[in-house]
Design a protein around this nucleic acid. Structure first.
Length: 567
RNA sequence: GUCUUCGUAGUGAAACGGAUAUCACGCUUGGCUUCGAACCAAGUAAUCCAGGUUCGAAUCCUGGCGAAGGCACCA
């Protein structure tokens, strides 16, 4: 339990004792909107009803009854709110010492109870490009995985790659027709271009559709030249994804492929046909879920080729059986909400009672419309990354004429990856993002560069302080400025933020908190002297800013963002 | 047609049903011989409309308007 949670509990107990009832809970205590009101607050509307008083009377009543203890310094009644002012000197010492001793584990909690959770994200297709839409998915999924781990869940991050759809045949058709034996350096990226070409050409060339169908059949037969070509190009894509995941520093425990599950799924369909819920309708095999208000779900087309649930179901079952998970999370675009409800219902009908959760997020659009690999209206990861890197490098060169190329590149890379991750995770998942590349390449305001800059600034102060530091114990009573007290409260709230972010699967919660913390620090930095203060004050302030640095680093870690020593 | 999501300063975003609606960008003004100006300070400007529930609504309910998305052979 965090320090603040303990305090809330103490206050709730003190109130319950005062009114001789057990009605107030720790969570009823909220933070006042203005620090002048106090540190914690109990809105007394509900309580007043219980006691048949007006809320203002209730506050007066409580004020007269409540016993102050060693945490609550004093109370302050403002209208219907009973506010509490905490003993800051004690809080300050406890908070800073906890952060500085726990370091990277400050903020972790045990709420997940080691529950096994599998989270599936970054479900890209081979033989297509990896674009900014995928980035929202992978950053969201990766961050949620990290946040759940911080809440003590045993998280298994996985990805599921569709390598067996008709799109693979289209790409192979275009490759054979227009590119022959061509090979590019970045093969995954190259295939994306080939796919876009395929879609464009197929629109005007109707006869080619039959060729594509033939290629698909050849692939499905798992023998012959087309199949070999499929295998080769599939590997190009997979290598391309690996390279992207490496650049983004994102790891999966396991990557599943549709081609590994499709046969099992087809067997399942024939076993289940006319049992359970699978029926023939208009020539196709469907699951009729109308009585659950979920419409119908197609399994096989009337030409008996497979649709997406065929492989998704055996995969889901493998997750439950082989990985023994309690909860299965799917990070998938909101457009597939109905499909996931159908999938979960089918699994439930098959007897799987484990929790299945669709972690939905809205998609990424471009200013001139929906992103679509078919029309070529996409921003690929590679293009975005290259542009962002150029911008970051030029910004660094403006500031550090003496840096080596290598150092510039290293720092630029971290700034760029941070910027991309932050842009995607700072916005709540239910908002459509209209991706503006200019906006994403900004390094000021509500951005990860602002946070990285704050850390670099603190590093710089600490470096300059090295020689002046003594070994004496620090007296935190020297942190008496109101801005310092606010910073302490902010730092103390961090563990709760991690918990809320976990409960709501919400990285944006972390992003918002970190930005506010950094803003408060930068404001503070401009208003006080640190290195030029008296020795004892200086040491207390150095400890404070080191704690701030630690919390920013910890929070950024949950978003998958690295900091830089200097920038 | 039907279901789902979203409508907050010029733009983009925040606000467990709670106190004066917060932040960024933009624009106007000010701050570097000073611990890092990728920074800070001040100013400017907003809850789609109409009802309802509530002590209290940007938030919940109903209806309208607007935008996006789903709804049988695309994933």
């Amino acid at each position: 339990m965090s320090i603040l949670q303990k305090i809330k509990q103490n206050i709730a107990e003190a109130i319950n004792k005062a009114i001789k009832k057990d009605v107030v809970k720790a969570d009823d205590l909220v933070y006042p909107p203005n620090p002048d009101f106090g540190d914690l607050s109990l809105p007394c509307f509900e309580l007043a009803k219980n006691f048949k008083k007006t809320s203002v009377e209730m506050v007066e009543f409580l004020t007269s009854k409540i016993k102050l203890d060693n945490v609550i310094l004093t109370t302050k009644a403002i209208g219907p709110y009973l506010n509490f002012i905490l003993d800051k000197s004690k809080l300050t010492t406890e908070v800073i010492e906890e952060i500085l001793s726990k370091k990277q584990s400050y903020g972790l909690n045990k709420s997940g109870n080691k529950e096994r959770v599998m989270i599936e994200f970054s479900n890209a297709n081979t033989h297509k490009e990896y674009h900014v839409g995928h980035l929202r998915n992978i950053f969201y999924g990766d961050s949620v995985a990290k946040i759940l781990s911080a809440n003590d869940y045993e998280v298994i991050p996985v990805s599921y790659i569709n390598d067996f759809g008709i799109h693979t045949a289209k790409t192979i058709w275009a490759y054979k027709t227009f590119y022959k034996e061509e090979e590019a350096e970045d093969k995954g990226y190259f295939l994306g271009k080939v796919y876009a070409r395929a879609c464009k050409e197929l629109e005007k060339n109707k006869e080619a559709k039959a060729e594509v169908g033939l290629i698909m059949k050849n692939i499905e037969s798992r023998q012959g030249d087309d199949y070999q070509l499929w295998k080769k190009t599939r590997q190009w894509s997979i290598d391309g994804f690996d390279k992207i995941y490496q650049e983004l520093k994102i790891k999966f425990d396991k990557i599943f492929y549709e081609s590994e599950f499709i046969n099992e799924g087809l067997d399942m369909v024939s076993n289940f046909y006319q049992k359970f819920f699978l029926v023939k309708s208009e020539g196709a095999i469907i699951a009729n879920l109308e009585k659950f208000n979920l419409g119908v779900l197609l399994f096989l087309r009337s030409d008996s080729t497979a649709l997406y649930p065929v492989a998704d179901i055996p995969l889901a079952i493998e997750k439950f059986k082989k990985y023994k998970i309690n909860k299965s999370i799917y990070v998938v675009d909101a457009r597939q909400s109905l499909y996931l409800k159908q999938l979960f219902k089918v699994l439930e009908l098959l007897g799987f009672k484990q929790e299945m959760k669709h972690l939905s997020y809205e998609f990424v659009k471009l200013p001139d419309g929906t992103m679509s690999s078919r029309t070529g209206n996409v921003i690929t990861y590679e293009d975005l990354h290259t542009q962002a890197l150029e911008k970051a490098i030029s910004e660094i060169k403006k500031r550090h004429i003496d840096w080596s190329e290598e150092k510039i590149n290293q720092v630029a890379e971290k700034i760029v990856i941070g910027a991309l991750k932050f842009e995607m995770t700072k916005i709540s998942a239910d908002k459509v993002i209209v991706f503006d590349i200019e906006q994403a390449l900004r390094f000021d305001g509500f951005t990860s560069a602002y946070l990285q800059y704050t850390v670099a600034r603190i590093n710089s102060i600490n470096k300059k302080a090295q020689k002046q530091k003594s070994a004496k114990t620090i007296d935190f009573n020297n942190l008496g400025e109101s801005k310092e007290r606010q910073l302490i409260m902010k730092l103390a709230k961090y563990p709760e933020i991690v918990e809320v972010a976990g409960k709501n699967y919400d990285p944006a919660e972390i992003a918002k908190y970190l930005f506010e913390l950094a803003q408060e620090f930068n404001d503070y930095y401009h208003s006080v002297q640190i290195l030029k203060a008296e020795e004892e004050i200086m040491e207390a302030r150095l400890a404070l800013i080191t704690a701030i640095r630690q919390v920013i680093i910890n929070g950024l870690e949950l978003l998958g963002i690295e900091v830089v020593e200097e920038m």
